[in-house]
Simulated assay, not measured.
Amino acid sequence: MLAGVWDHSAFRKDMLGRLRRTARFIAETTYAERGIAEATIAKVREVHERVAGVLPDGTPYRADDPELLAWVHVTEMWSFLAAWQRYGVPVSRAEEDVYYTETARIAEALGADPVPRSRFEAEGLIAAMRSQLVVDDRTREVAHFLLGHPPTSLAMAPAQAAIFAAAVDLLPDWARAMHGLQRPVATLPLVRGSTLAIAKTFRWAFH
């Protein structure tokens, strides 16, 4: 899916705009009424149908490929859950499975296949697809662009640094190794403490 974003998105000129659109999709498919969620999904499917291209090695790709959509879905859901377990209110294994079952409806509506309905299935799907993952100049540039993106203001710099470091910390060991990233061991207590404080502030604000 990185190729589709690389070839058909203006994320390098408007990263925050791209992130806002993604956040809006998540919010509308999670919290909005059914009609709004279905319209949002239909709009994204329409966009995906127009996105196609060829990888640097000559392999063709399509944004509506069921397996690619499944990869995006499962890694997003895994990441959201991992962040919630560390910085939110931890949930039980049974509740994790409910989470995957409920979010599967969105993935299916987008055309993803296969779609996991439990943590066990999610981890199995990630493991099964790891052999297809590739690190190249594009992935390195995107990672550098995201992690090195300047804050919108000096006041936001400490919070952004903590959140970015926390994101790297949440990655599985094999994913950090692929990208050549290091867990911030020396500053890990500070990173996790700062991020937890930020998370608590957000939860308080939304209440």
Score class of each variant (00 low, 15 high):
Leu2Glu: 04
Gly4His: 04
Trp6Ser: 09
Trp6Met: 14
Trp6Pro: 06
Asp7Ala: 15
His8Gly: 09
Ala10Val: 14
Ala10Lys: 08
Lys13Asn: 11
Asp14Leu: 07
Asp14Tyr: 07
Met15Leu: 15
Leu19Trp: 08
Thr22Asp: 03
Thr22Lys: 05
Phe25Gly: 09
Phe25Asn: 08
Ala27Arg: 15
Glu28Leu: 05
Thr29Asp: 01
Tyr31Thr: 02
Ala32Thr: 01
Glu33Ile: 04
Glu33Trp: 08
Glu33Lys: 09
Ile36Cys: 08
Ile36Pro: 06
Ala37His: 01
Ala37Asp: 00
Ala39Ile: 01
Thr40Phe: 01
Ile41Thr: 04
Ile41Arg: 01
Ala42Lys: 10
Ala42Arg: 12
Ala42Asn: 10
His48Pro: 00
His48Leu: 00
His48Glu: 00
Arg50Ile: 05
Arg50Leu: 13
Ala52Lys: 13
Val54Met: 13
Val54Trp: 04
Val54Tyr: 04
Leu55Pro: 05
Pro56Trp: 03
Pro56Arg: 04
Asp57Cys: 01
Asp57Gln: 03
Gly58Val: 03
Tyr61Leu: 10
Arg62Pro: 13
Ala63His: 00
Ala63Leu: 03
Ala63Asn: 03
Asp64Lys: 03
Glu67Ser: 11
Leu68Arg: 06
Leu69His: 01
Ala70His: 02
Val72Leu: 05
Val72Tyr: 02
Val72Arg: 03
His73Asn: 04
Val74Asn: 02
Thr75Ala: 03
Glu76Thr: 12
Met77Gln: 14
Met77Glu: 11
Trp78Phe: 08
Ser79Thr: 14
Ser79His: 11
Phe80Glu: 12
Ala82Glu: 13
Ala82Gly: 06
Val91Ala: 15
Val91Asp: 14
Ala94Asp: 13
Glu95Val: 06
Glu96Phe: 05
Val98Gln: 07
Tyr99Val: 03
Glu102Gly: 02
Thr103Gln: 02
Thr103Asn: 03
Thr103Val: 02
Ala104Lys: 00
Gly111Pro: 02
Ala112Asp: 02
Val115Gln: 02
Pro116Leu: 05
Arg117Ala: 11
Arg119Val: 00
Arg119Phe: 02
Ala122Ile: 00
Ala122Leu: 01
Leu125Cys: 04
Ile126Thr: 09
Ile126Ser: 06
Ala128Lys: 14
Ala128Pro: 09
Met129Gly: 09
Arg130Asp: 14
Ser131Leu: 07
Ser131Val: 12
Asp136Ser: 07
Asp137Cys: 06
Glu141Leu: 14
Val142Met: 10
Leu146Val: 15
Leu147Cys: 12
Leu147Met: 12
Gly148Thr: 10
His149Cys: 11
Pro150Tyr: 05
Pro151Ile: 07
Pro151Tyr: 12
Thr152Phe: 07
Ser153Asn: 12
Ser153Val: 07
Met156Cys: 11
Pro158His: 10
Pro158Thr: 10
Ala159Ser: 10
Gln160Thr: 07
Ala161His: 09
Ile163Thr: 13
Phe164Gln: 11
Asp169Glu: 15
Leu170Val: 00
Leu171Thr: 05
Arg176Thr: 07
Arg176Trp: 02
Arg176Gln: 08
Ala177Thr: 04
Met178Ala: 14
His179Pro: 05
Leu181Gly: 00
Gln182Val: 10
Gln182Pro: 05
Ala186Glu: 09
Ala186Phe: 09
Ala186Cys: 07
Thr187Leu: 15
Thr187Met: 13
Leu188Ser: 13
Leu190His: 12
Gly193Met: 08
Gly193Thr: 07
Thr195Leu: 06
Thr195Asp: 01
Thr195Gly: 04
Leu196Glu: 10
Ala199Phe: 12
Lys200Trp: 14
Arg203Asp: 12
Trp204Leu: 13
Trp204Cys: 10
